[in-house]
C-alpha cells in the first residue's frame, strides 16, 4: 500500500513546478552569444546585461536578430556568411534599426535630425539608447537629453503638441490590456492602436511642430473610433456583472431560505 501510494504521489510530484528562472536561464543559454558575452566583464559583456530587462528582451528580440550571425554555433557566431553584421557605425545606426522600425526611420531621415546625420546630428541611440532600450514614451523628450545638442524650446513645443494624443494612446492601451486580462480577444483593437501609434510617432519623428499640430485632429478621430469599440466592450462587461450580481444574490437568498427550512424542520422534530 505504502509503495503504491508513494508512487502515485511521486508521479504527481514529477509534474510539479521548478523555479522559472532555471527555465528562463536555459532558454537564454541556448544562444551562444549570451553564453560567451554574458560571462565576460567590462565593455564586451555589458551589452548582454543592458539588454536584459530591455523592451527587446521582453519581446524576444535576441542578439542575432539585430547583429546577425549563427546563435547556435560558437564557430559561426561571428561569420559574415551567416549574416553577422557586428556593431554599426554612428551613421549606419538608423538603417540598422530601420530594418524593423521602417516607418519612423523614413520620417527621421526627412527630419532635421536625419538631415544632420554625419554632421553632429543624432541617430536612434542618441535618444533611445541601444541595448538597454525601453518602451518609447514622450518622456524621452526632456530638457536634460535634448539640451545635449540644442535648446529645449522647440523640443518642448513638440512635446506639448503630442502630449494629449500620447496620453489618449496610453489610456487606450491600458483599457485594452485590462480587457485582454479578462480573456477578451483584443488583437484587432491592439492592431488598430499599434497602427495609429506608429503613424503618430512617424509624425513627430519629423520634428515639425506645425505638421504635428495640423495632423493631430486626424489621429484623435481615429483613436476616438477605437475608444468607442473599447467602451462597447466595457459596457458588455458591466452588463455581465449586473447579471452575475443578481445570480449571486439569488443564490444567497436560496441558501438562507434552505437553512431556515432546515431550522423549521428541526424545531418541528423537537416539538
Amino acid at each position: 500500500m505504502i509503495h503504491i501510494l508513494g508512487r502515485t504521489w511521486g508521479l504527481l510530484l514529477f509534474l510539479l513546478f521548478l523555479p522559472t528562472d532555471v527555465s528562463a536561464q536555459q532558454n537564454q543559454d541556448e544562444t551562444v552569444c549570451i553564453q560567451c558575452h554574458g560571462g565576460i566583464p567590462g565593455a564586451i559583456g555589458a551589452p548582454v546585461r543592458q539588454w536584459q530587462g530591455s523592451i527587446h528582451q521582453r519581446h524576444g528580440v535576441l542578439c542575432f536578430h539585430c547583429h546577425g550571425g549563427d546563435p547556435t554555433d560558437f564557430g559561426l557566431a561571428h561569420s559574415p556568411e551567416r549574416g553577422f553584421l557586428g556593431a554599426p557605425g554612428d551613421e549606419d545606426v538608423p538603417k540598422f534599426c530601420g530594418r524593423c522600425h521602417v516607418g519612423v526611420t523614413e520620417d527621421y531621415f526627412e527630419s532635421a535630425h536625419g538631415q544632420a546625420l554625419g554632421a553632429g546630428g543624432p541617430n536612434c541611440v542618441t535618444c533611445h539608447g541601444s541595448h538597454a532600450v525601453q518602451r518609447a514614451t514622450s518622456e524621452l523628450i526632456n530638457p536634460q537629453d535634448c539640451t545635449r545638442c540644442h535648446e529645449y524650446g522647440r523640443a518642448e513645443e513638440i512635446k506639448n503638441a503630442i502630449a494629449g494624443t500620447e496620453a489618449f494612446i496610453s489610456s487606450l492601451e491600458g483599457d485594452v490590456a485590462a480587457l485582454h486580462r479578462l480573456g477578451i480577444d483584443t488583437s484587432r483593437l491592439e492592431g488598430s492602436i499599434f497602427s495609429v501609434r506608429n503613424e503618430f510617432r512617424r509624425l513627430f519623428h519629423s520634428v515639425d511642430v506645425e505638421r504635428v499640430r495640423n495632423e493631430t485632429d486626424n489621429f484623435q478621430q481615429q483613436l476616438g473610433v477605437i475608444a468607442g469599440q473599447v467602451e462597447a466592450l466595457q459596457a458588455e462587461l458591466a452588463r455581465r456583472k449586473v447579471w452575475g450580481g443578481a445570480v449571486v444574490v439569488l443564490l444567497i437568498l436560496a441558501g438562507v431560505l434552505s437553512l431556515l427550512l432546515y431550522k423549521s424542520y428541526m424545531e418541528g422534530k423537537e416539538g
Binding site: 452575475g244 450580481g245 445570480v247 443564490l251 444567497i252 436560496a254 441558501g255 438562507v256 437553512l259 424542520y265
Partner: peptide
C-alpha cells in the same frame, strides 16, 4: 435542506468570482 443551503452559498461564491 441544510446541504442545499451550504451548496447555495458555495455556488454564490463560485458565481461571484466568475463574474467579478
Amino acid at each position: 435542506a441544510k446541504e442545499a443551503g451550504v451548496i447555495s452559498f458555495f455556488l454564490a461564491l463560485l458565481v461571484a468570482i466568475t463574474f467579478f
